[in-house]
């Protein structure tokens, strides 16, 4: 079977690519499109390092086939900053020391942004449940929660 021709929108820009059935969306993003911000931690849906949105829904890119994205709107970590200015979540991850090795960070930021779009003022419990599919082996999570809390209040204009 020939490669699939897929037409998507990624971070607002139309993007076309060719892929094999076996390639996941994460493989396509990283290997075909050089969008290496999304990370592969486990390739089995457990760690959330590959978090992206598809048509506005948070998913693991490692559990989606590249060919499934045909006609869909994909959002990745590369689309979070506006030009050179970082998104408040990105700023607060830096300011509040919410990362060490950084492997988990893109996934956390994409997932947290998706939470704040639905719920601009989440409780700590809501944050922890929403982010339960994002694993971090370095920070112990508390600083991540602080960063998301602070970014949320900044986004609310407080």
């Amino acid at each position: 079977m020939a490669k699939h021709h897929v037409a998507t929108t990624i971070n607002g820009d139309p993007v076309e690519y060719l892929c094999d059935t076996e390639q996941t969306l994460l493989d396509v993003l990283r290997d075909n499109l050089q969008l290496t911000g999304s990370k592969e931690g486990c390739a089995s849906g457990d760690c959330g390092a590959c978090s992206v949105t598809i048509d506005g829904r948070l998913v693991c890119a490692c559990l989606v086939l590249g060919v499934e994205a045909d006609g869909c709107e994909v959002g990745t970590i590369e689309g979070i900053a506006e030009g050179d200015s970082l998104h408040p979540l990105q700023q607060h991850f830096l300011q509040d020391a919410a990362l060490q090795c950084g492997i988990c960070t893109p996934g956390f930021i994409v997932a947290a942004k998706s939470l704040l779009e639905r719920n601009p003022n989440p409780t700590e419990t809501e944050m922890r449940y929403w982010l339960a599919g994002n694993l971090c082996r370095c920070t112990g999570y508390d600083k991540i929660i602080t960063a998301v809390t602070n970014a949320a209040s900044e986004l609310r204009g407080e």
Partner: peptide, 9 residues
């Protein structure tokens, strides 16, 4: 079932 990400699918 699973996390927020898994719930999306």
């Amino acid at each position: 079932i699973g996390s927020t990400q898994i719930q999306g699918r």
